[in-house]
Amino acid sequence: MGKIKSLEELKQLREQYKSKVDIREKGDQMEKMILVRVAMATCGIASGARDVMDAFIDEVANRKLDNVVVSQTGCMGYCYAEPTVEVTIPGKEPVVFGEVNKDRVKEIVDKYIIHGELLDGIIPVTHKTVDD
């Protein structure tokens, strides 16, 4: 690392390093975040949930969406429709998408996460959690 020569350069470095701590900064403001949870149990992983999760992470980073957190969860029970992804926009009911693949990731980000429009392939939520 060479010496930083100006405030401009320092600011550029800051932008470059931001990604190192952004998961932590988002976690710090979890209540304001759109939460994307990818089901990562055995069935999910076998159907390609890892790739789906990577695709979400890339898509969110490419579009510089600093209000979206991608995280993983256990089996949601919809094993027939894996990989499944649950998206929760603050103040709204969680929506579960089934049979998600890389192309569907783009669609979900474009339509639902950015514009709040619903799209095909939503699995009706059939369960309640202890939090409800």
């Binding site: 405030l7 320092l10 600011k11 470095l13 800051r14 390093y17 190192k20 701590v21």
Partner: peptide, 25 residues
């Protein structure tokens, strides 16, 4: 409890040294 204290890059990512830069310039 938020950054790695041994990593200057994490401090810079958290607006580190921006205040010094602002004061000096």
């Amino acid at each position: 409890g938020f950054i790695d204290p041994d990593n200057i890059e994490e401090y810079i990512a958290r607006d580190g040294y921006q205040a010094l830069g602002k004061a000096l310039t």
